[in-house]
Nucleic acid binder design. Sequence first.
DNA 1: AGAAAAACATGATAAAAGTCATGTTTATCC
DNA 2: GGATAAACATGACTTTTATCATGTTTTTCT
Lengths: 240, 240
Amino acid sequence: MSLNKSSQLNVQCQFCKSRADSHFADLPDEDLSILSAHKSCVTYKKGQNLFYEGTRPMGIFCINYGKVKVYKMGSNGKEQILFIAQPGDFLGYRSLLSEEFYGASAAVIEQAAICFIPKSDFLTILNKNPAFFSKLMKAVCHELGVMEDKLAQLAQKSVRERLAATILMLKETYGMEGEGSDLIDIALSREDLANIVGTATETVIRLLSEFKSDGLIGLEGKKIKVIDSQKLVHEADFYG
Amino acid sequence: MSLNKSSQLNVQCQFCKSRADSHFADLPDEDLSILSAHKSCVTYKKGQNLFYEGTRPMGIFCINYGKVKVYKMGSNGKEQILFIAQPGDFLGYRSLLSEEFYGASAAVIEQAAICFIPKSDFLTILNKNPAFFSKLMKAVCHELGVMEDKLAQLAQKSVRERLAATILMLKETYGMEGEGSDLIDIALSREDLANIVGTATETVIRLLSEFKSDGLIGLEGKKIKVIDSQKLVHEADFYG
DNA sequence: AGAAAAACATGATAAAAGTCATGTTTATCC
DNA sequence: GGATAAACATGACTTTTATCATGTTTTTCT
């Protein structure tokens, strides 16, 4: 009886586990059913793209589970990761609201289930529900502050400092894998990590090894564990 | 009869010349008079600060004339300029709406007249006028896109490319001084320019000299003129 | 106007980080 | 399950950019 075609699931928004962590958290059932009406929910494998920079947004993506990197491609072929979305996060609403083409691309980095809600339904809720609109405004303003911070960090800190700060951020943002594990719950390739920090892959590899042999972190494949949080904070603040 | 105390002017928003370039452009008179009711308009000299990072926003600043840099201070004492506001621009509304402390500081770089509108009046208009709210939302979303772009540029381009791109941006954004002049209408110290580009002052000085002797730009004190736009674009795109 | 301070400029040097080359391990795919 | 590709790792070398030192020019202030 097991169908292999598991790519369509279509969980109703009302019953979505990730909704509690999202901007949809306290939307009334009425609004939720409008959002659910024409949505499609699809599972993506690692490496698949949700959308590409320069294309027209047609709706928003809502992550049920999994992780997605949002990145910009440089003329040199290197990508800069702007942020990594996790369950409950929305993608693409920024471009939708500014009525521009996507300014970045999005690709799955850990197997994901993602709902797509068409533009019109999303805008309907936005117009219908001023509290939701305000909430979203607040979120965008916050995001802008976060982005400004990243910009300043990138300009002012060394690669070493930024890598230390990034590891601490990852721990903060993605927490630990289940019980008893102290590994940060995200599997990033060294290349992706380099593209978050804004440096070369080799440099990240070298610094990770250093941090490891200095007893700041532990490495298990792609997963990192923070051993000496104190020292890591110190590395992130000034330069060693 | 001439009072030296020219620092208070209090132009009514209705009659403000810069309003046409601002988000207040098509606000009804009714709303404008609410905004004007408790505002104060002050002239600032170069170097004065409007607000500091980490303090609580009490309202918004609206630039009548002059230029203001918005910057973040790094732990190393270096500042990173996030953007330079010009007449018609608002400052501080981002933090106001996300209900956070200021994430950056603002200082006048060219003598300015700036109105301050208290938080409550601004929020009144925001609640009263959904079209204005939407317009602002759109603007913030656009700003976020711009900031993401800056981040990627900073991460992916060389200092040389970024300086070339910055000069072109300045020309685009601030235009030329009055008639017959081809100088870009902004007087930035080499240090400020370095803090926009995200590099050391000496490096900017050296690169400007190079660009000059290569016939890409002309320099007259703090002002820059673009001589060979074509080549400058080329410098900005890849690396020479 | 003249002193003091700030901004500009240039050279010499050092440090940080990128690139290239090559080998090893780990994942992925018929 | 074994071939193929991708990711990881490390060394050698180069380039870029920052830092330090010092001198000159321009502003600013009284």
